[in-house]
Design a binder for these strands. Structure first.
Lengths: 245, 245
DNA sequence: CGTTTGCTTGACAGCATTCAACGTTGGTGG
DNA sequence: CCACCAACGTTGAATGCTGTCAAGCAAACG
């Protein structure tokens, strides 16, 4: 950092890391790109931004300028309806994109809150549009990501529409577990970054119900729950909860 | 049509109608395009396809080749999970796009079934990719549509996660009403194209509960329900159901 | 005209919510 | 260092909404 920028907020002090030397390559926007392609992509990411725990990356109503790729940390997004109803619509971890909802109207339609100190890559949407017009692989990958989000939400609708409390929790944990594994973490021993309330909001359940479901699975020996520290003891039993009904 | 193709199935016998002279311009992919732009777009739509009532446009697992724009008629899409769970994920009417889920994996992940005799424009995805690379307005519009679908599903998640039966039905009817109005139909006198079972599946409710909710709103003078013929007598009351809780 | 499919209604059971109390954890300031 | 507080989490009892089961009705179809 140069002396002249010493007073700038910490978020601008990051080392320049580009897509081509990012360790999230396998998970993020540039999946499967070759090295020369990647170098053209380096101009895509404008800046980095650090968001402290419980800080907001954007909020509903903010003008949409960029999408964000989670580099480190953990986020939740939540939507609010006219009547003041509120619901967590997703949890995002490294390599996942945030802000796609804003493309629709030019304004963000949900809030994105960091559940731990986090860092994101800022991807100006105008530049993404431009680059993906001359770069078919990028275009395709971006479309895939948008489509994947649609499919993911179909899954959530299925969960909310047809599962009981324990089944919802099982689906939630299995999903989390699988995504952690894909990032090289243990899938069986996880630390939840969100409160029971946030889990409940996401799963369409009240806190007490979430807590009870945890306790039940704990008593049955499927999980070992100690606050936010969760160990999956019997993954098969979790899966059976989904398929068996 | 040339004599050589006379034996082709009826679905290929449509008159050639192009985007530039389609009456769904305001609702479909080419919103806000100018005439010269539209003419370049005419090459986008490959063919038309007719789907009879309860016929399938595509089903889960089918290779993804095209997206479809509803020209006339009415569709439902439904997703099935591993455990055999089944849920209607949406209803589509004129001007709305079908098949966006397939971009993600190259295979469709839900079924699309016509709820009445319908006709769709077949939009080969490869051509859409190509054209939207050289045609920024098309690119932007397509992204908007994908994003809008994400936002729509946020709304459904909110509905499924936090509303009670009557409120869900109210939200459903208001949404239907608004979309019909946008197409020049009455928003207060509507004929449902789907069964109670399909409504229930979409709203995460059993048939009996849907029926009871209809009856209750009918008895309260909010609706006039005669089978699938529904008249909205007190739209404000419907809205209050959403905001008031 | 009979059969099938869809719709409605009633009685009852079950699961999640609500309300309330208590336990735990982590941060703050005395 | 400890006490206190606030936020989070757990558990119990009672209520209520929705699901389930069952029966009857209405409309569509051949």
């Amino acid at each position: 950092m140069t002396p002249a920028t010493a007073a700038a907020p910490a978020r601008d002090c990051e080392l320049k890391i580009e897509c081509s030397n990012c360790n999230l390559l396998e998970l993020c926007l540039p999946i499967g790109f070759s090295t020369p392609e990647l170098e053209r992509l380096d101009s895509l990411v404008g800046t980095r931004r650090t968001v402290r725990q419980s800080g907001r990356l954007f909020r509903s109503g903010d003008p949409f300028v960029s999408v964000f790729a989670v580099r480190t940390g953990f986020f939740k997004t939540s939507a609010t309806s006219g009547g003041g109803r509120h619901q967590v619509t997703g949890f995002q971890m490294a390599g996942e994109l945030l802000g796609l909802d804003g493309i629709s109207t030019g304004q963000h339609s949900c809030d994105a809150v960091a559940l731990e100190d986090s860092q994101v890559c800022v991807i100006p949407y105008a530049r993404l549009e431009l680059l993906s017009r001359e770069f078919a692989d990028l275009q395709r990958q971006f479309h895939r990501i948008l489509s994947r989000e649609i499919v993911r939400e179909h899954g959530v609708m299925l969960l909310l529409g047809s599962m009981r409390a324990e089944e919802r929790l099982a689906a939630f944990l299995l999903n989390l577990s699988q995504r952690l594994r894909a990032r090289g973490f243990s899938g069986s021993s996880l630390i939840l970054r969100m409160t029971r309330e946030e889990i409940g909001s996401y799963l369409g359940l009240k806190v007490e119900t979430v807590s009870r479901a945890f306790s039940k699975l704990n008593d049955e020996g499927v999980l070992e729950v100690r606050q936010r520290q969760v160990r999956v003891l019997d993954e098969l039993a979790l899966r059976r909860l989904l398929d068996g009904a």
